[in-house]
Nucleic acid binder design. Structure first.
Lengths: 111, 111
DNA sequence: CTCTCTACCTCACCATGTGATGTAGAGGAT
DNA sequence: ATCCTCTACATCACATGGTGAGGTAGAGAG
């Protein structure tokens, strides 16, 4: 199994998960995910930015450009009410899926 | 999130998970997964058979044709030592990934 | 004026799950 | 006999979305 494939379907959950605790910009979101996961999940920019755009388009996130003191401008993302709702739904879905995997792989009688 | 995407990368783990408890044929594997997951995971034939072939090719499974009392012949799959090793590895990987998702989405200080 | 760091963005490619469709054997109904 | 249905295995076109590489741009250092 490519670990890579595991990410599919969880990237938006991860993003919403860090943004529900406060406004962050893209780069920072990546760092936060990496830190919280103990570096096990290392967000690639190839999926991070597209995912942020998807979420913004759907109204789960609200974004605004702001200048940092150094370096280029940053795009800050803030979770919306719709985003929080989406987070809850995806979180529940994930929990049930994870439970299912555990049940299937735990084996036989007392699974 | 399409729930569908969550399956990516876990299908082989699921298959190995049910086969480590005994020899089964394809259709039966699907039923077993569906049953154990409380019908939350409903294996599609479109991924089940290809995945079985992949696992067989890699030596994780050993297969043999056998006639059923009714209906068409069945292909029984048995997990090999390599398969058990793969199961352990994928299981551990999954556990760590699931833990990571939990850590990232659980939020702030006390993760 | 070039190098490097931060920060954002996009694209070709690839793995793989989805849904539809096909092949067959066996038993039951007409 | 013919058709239908259930079991059982298999394959294919298509869609999703992550991977890795490459590109743009601002700001400070040499």
């Amino acid at each position: 199994m490519d670990r890579s494939q595991l990410l599919k379907g969880t990237t938006e959950l991860l993003i919403l998960g860090v943004l529900k605790d406060g406004e962050l910009y893209g780069y920072e979101i990546a760092q936060r995910i990496r830190d919280r996961s103990g570096a096990f999940i290392d967000p690639g920019e190839g999926w991070l930015y597209p995912a942020l755009h998807r979420l913004e388009t759907r109204g789960a996130l609200q974004a605004s450009w702001r200048a940092g003191r150094i370096g280029p401008r940053r795009r800050y993302y803030k979770i919306t009410d719709a985003g929080l709702t989406a987070f809850d739904a995806q979180s529940a879905e994930w929990a049930q899926f994870a439970r299912s995997v555990r049940l299937v792989t735990a084996g036989g009688a007392d699974g």
